[in-house]
């Protein structure tokens, strides 16, 4: 009982850190641009498929595939921004929803056309096996996933605080009009923000692909997960985002171990609702 619980905490923590990475992309898009991207989960789905293709093509391990998929999704993010999002900035969120849901349908059907309906998984992996610590085991691939995620979250923190582009992003999030006055071209800043958000899903997609499969509807779960993490964390705190990701990850593995593998979404949903009811600003939010 206690062993299962401890094991769940370990596994959940690993997964949770990857969720935090996914939610980070959503968080900067929502926080900086105030854009509601309903298709964020589907960006993860697309990233996983791209990892699958790259991994199959070059016989690479999934963890390496972001070398190629990150630029791909960055460009895809840019295109999406200039073609769609840029035109919805001054519109009601309802229009943003309609456009991003349209994008969601488009991405799912594109996945269906390109990769067909059956689930896809990568076969090659050189990071296999477990690390055993007493009675507990850690899947090496998840450990690698968690560590890489932490590195990228740290990188984004550095970028936001130390570089001019990052500061411009934060300035734009505080006050659009003031930022424009100070010479920040917000279209470019926003495009960069959106592209970075998309690129982060590519990293996560590669990591997830090393131990999971995906199908055209695979984005639904990650969409819900990342909004849940975001709601829990609130806006503006990176450590808060990591902690929230871990909470969600652990809740998920607990539901899997103690109730039913299918109940994982119920746990996530329960957290989501509870947070919205009890603490709409999130646990660590500044806004």
């Amino acid at each position: 009982m206690i062993e299962t619980a401890t094991q769940s905490v370990i596994t959940g923590t690993m997964m949770g850190i990857i969720y935090a990475l996914i939610a980070l992309g959503l968080s900067i898009i929502f926080g900086v641009m105030n854009v509601v991207n309903f298709a964020h989960g589907d960006f993860v789905m697309l990233a996983m498929y791209l990892s699958f293709t790259v991994g199959t093509l070059f016989a690479w391990d999934a963890v390496i595939t972001p070398v190629i998929t990150v630029p791909l999704l960055f460009v895809f993010g840019l295109i999406t921004y200039y073609l769609l999002i840029d035109r919805t900035l001054r519109q009601m969120y309802v229009v943003q929803l309609a456009v991003t849901v349209g994008l969601q349908i488009l991405m799912r059907s594109a996945a269906l056309i390109i990769w067909q309906a059956q689930p896809r998984a990568l076969q090659y992996s050189f990071i296999q096996g477990n690390i055993e610590i007493g009675p507990y085991s850690i899947l090496t691939s998840r450990l690698v996933g968690a560590v890489v995620s932490l590195i990228f979250i740290g990188g984004i923190a550095y970028f936001l605080n130390k570089t001019w582009s990052g500061k411009a992003m934060r300035a734009a999030s505080d006050d659009l009009d003031v930022a424009s006055l100070m010479g920040v071209n917000y279209h470019r800043t926003y495009a960069l923000t959106f592209a970075i958000g998309a690129a982060l899903t590519a990293v996560a997609g590669g990591l997830l692909m090393s131990f999971q499969q995906t199908d055209p509807q695979g984005g639904v779960r990650f969409g819900l997960l990342s909004w849940c993490v975001l709601a829990l964390a609130g806006l503006g705190s990176l450590p808060g985002l990591i902690v929230s990701g871990i909470i969600v990850g652990i809740a998920e593995t607990f539901a899997i171990s103690f109730i039913d593998p299918r109940a994982r979404l119920l746990a996530v949903y329960a957290i989501f609702i509870l947070v919205l009811w009890l603490r709409p600003r999130g646990l660590f939010g500044r806004k």
Partner: peptide
Amino acid sequence: GMEGLYLAVYAVILILIALFQP
């Protein structure tokens, strides 16, 4: 021929309406 193609076209139409006739 292609599963999903009709949905893709449909999605594009939805997006176009939402963008140009909000």
